[in-house]
């Protein structure tokens, strides 16, 4: 059994303790364990595959750099989400809002079963509706709807108050409802 396999059953907190002693296999295990959620949330927030991977890499490097000072006063994943949220918010400050029209993919898709095309169109509609949200609403909704965080943990992961997160979510879901129903009418 490899060391990495051995570490699979070790808790995140214990891995951070090992990482603090420069045990880099612990970092490898943390990456393996959490990269899917990191990449998914970064992609949903930015809409950019390459950028999501850069953010993912930087997030784990920040985990590594912080290992010696890490204090497990909340779940490791909440802390990890907070790193990603901050990296994404930094990015949003630097760039123009995500917009983008739905491309005409009808020709490319015409050979596929109608249900597949419909599913793809629904997914595209959702992606565009999410992308059109103001940054903070998008962050809140990605964490709450797609990453399965509660209002409380979304507040922990963003550093915003619970009432602020509630307000962002109420507005975000209302905007998404409207946006999706408008796209449906088209």
């Amino acid at each position: 059994m490899s060391l990495n396999n051995t570490l699979e059953t070790v808790s995140d907190t214990q891995l951070m303790v090992r990482l603090a002693t420069d045990d880099q296999t612990a970092l490898g295990t943390l990456v393996q364990r959490h990269q899917r959620r990191v990449l998914e949330v970064a992609y949903r927030m930015t809409g950019d595959h390459a950028l999501a991977q850069d953010i993912g890499q930087e997030a784990f490097l920040r985990v590594w750099r912080s290992a010696k000072r890490y204090k497990p006063t909340a779940q490791f994943t909440t802390w990890l989400y907070r790193i990603i949220v901050n990296l994404c918010l930094d990015e949003f400050k630097r760039r123009k809002p995500i917009t983008g029209d739905v491309p005409d993919g009808a020709d490319a898709c015409s050979y596929q079963a109608e249900t597949v095309v419909e599913a793809r169109e629904r997914a595209t509609a959702v992606q565009l509706a999410i992308a059109a949200l103001p940054d903070r609403q998008r962050v809140a909704v990605v964490l709450h709807r797609f990453s399965g965080l509660t209002v409380r943990t979304t507040a922990d992961a963003t550093g915003w108050s619970e009432s602020a997160v509630e307000s962002l979510l109420v507005r975000a879901y209302a905007a998404l409802r409207q946006s999706l129903s408008e796209q449906e009418k088209k």
Binding site: L39, Y43, T46, G47, D48, H49, A50, L51, A52, Q53, D54, I55, E58, E91, R94, R95, K96, I98, T99, G100, D101, V102, P103, G105, A108, C109, A119, R120, A123, T124, V126, Q127, L128, A131
Partner: peptide, 28 residues
Amino acid sequence: YRGASLRVAASIALAAGLGIATGAMVPR
């Protein structure tokens, strides 16, 4: 990061056009 950000809108449009929205992310 900054270079990548310029491609965001295009990436979304492309991802949507290619149907990536419903499937796998692409390796960098």
